[in-house]
């Protein structure tokens, strides 16, 4: 169980996330949807130890993991498949996969082979090309490799940041189908996405994030049905976010801070 309580985080002087509460239970897929710059990536960066949070707590199965290094997070079983794939282009697919299990250095060769087979089972296209440089793969295949590489670390909680980014529509559906198939593994999966329709379709529950705050949460069905979300994220109606109001929230927040008003 991955639990986030009152989390806040930011870069330099800017606070990006405020009082975020979120839970992901084993075996469920939770969608995190929000527009560009809402703070989705910032949230998953905090969860994976890339960005130290400013306040609040993160626990995995009751154990605090906030403020730990990325390595410590991976060791405890929290793994992020980052935005934009970030595979090691100059290395072979095999090396990419093995690097996924880097923290499990005690594994012997046979267990590593088992782990590779296990992690690549959803993505059979990868195995025959194991010795090719990863840069030879297509965008969709690289995304699959990134997910498989994440699975290599034997995570309890897997976070996927925009897995559909930059993929052709047919591939997007394919990726979402593969992610839905991961549900059987008992992982807690957090899926951060701009593609609200498809991520709501495969997830059990969902959170909507706006300007660094959770503004709605509930079962994916309910969220899908809510008119507000439909208007903003599903392209129903015409209003697609309001950049002015986003700026205003930040500015009023800054003013409040300066004046010392909570």
């Amino acid at each position: 169980m991955l639990e986030v309580r009152k989390l806040s985080a930011g870069y330099g002087n800017d606070i990006v996330l405020r009082d975020v509460d979120l839970t992901v239970a084993p075996g469920e897929i939770v969608a995190l949807i929000g527009a560009n710059g809402a703070g989705k990536s910032t949230l998953v960066k905090c969860l994976s130890g890339l960005l130290p949070p400013r306040g609040g707590t993160i626990t995995l199965d009751g154990e605090r993991i906030d403020g730990l290094s990325a390595r410590a997070c991976v060791l405890r079983g929290v793994c992020l498949v980052p935005e934009g794939r970030q595979t090691f282009g100059g290395l072979t697919i095999d090396a990419n996969l093995r690097l996924g299990a880097y923290v499990h250095s005690q594994l012997d060769e046979a267990s590593v082979q088992n782990l590779i087979d296990e992690s690549c089972r959803p993505f059979p296209a990868l195995l025959p090309r194991r010795d090719e440089p990863c840069a030879n793969l297509s965008g969709g295949q690289q995304q699959m490799l990134a997910v498989a590489r994440g699975l290599m670390s034997k995570p309890k909680a897997l976070m996927l940041d925009e897995p559909s980014l930059g993929l052709a529509p047919a591939l997007v559906s394919e990726i979402f189908r593969l992610i839905a198939d991961l549900r059987g593994r008992g992982l807690a999966i957090l899926l951060s996405e701009q593609n609200a329709r498809q991520s709501l379709a495969i997830s059990d529950r969902a959170y909507v994030i706006e300007n660094g705050r959770i503004v709605a949460c509930g079962t994916s069905k309910d969220i899908l049905a809510s008119s507000d979300v439909a208007e903003k994220y599903l392209g129903v109606g015409h209003k697609i976010g309001d950049p002015k109001s986003a700026k205003q929230t930040i500015m009023t927040a800054r003013l409040r801070k300066i004046m010392g008003v909570p």
Binding site: A70, R71, Q86, G89, L99, Y102
Partner: peptide, 12 residues
């Protein structure tokens, strides 16, 4: 190759 991804793999 990719320092950020390397950190995510638990590489210091």
């Amino acid at each position: 190759d990719n320092a950020m991804a390397a950190r995510l793999m638990g590489i210091d």
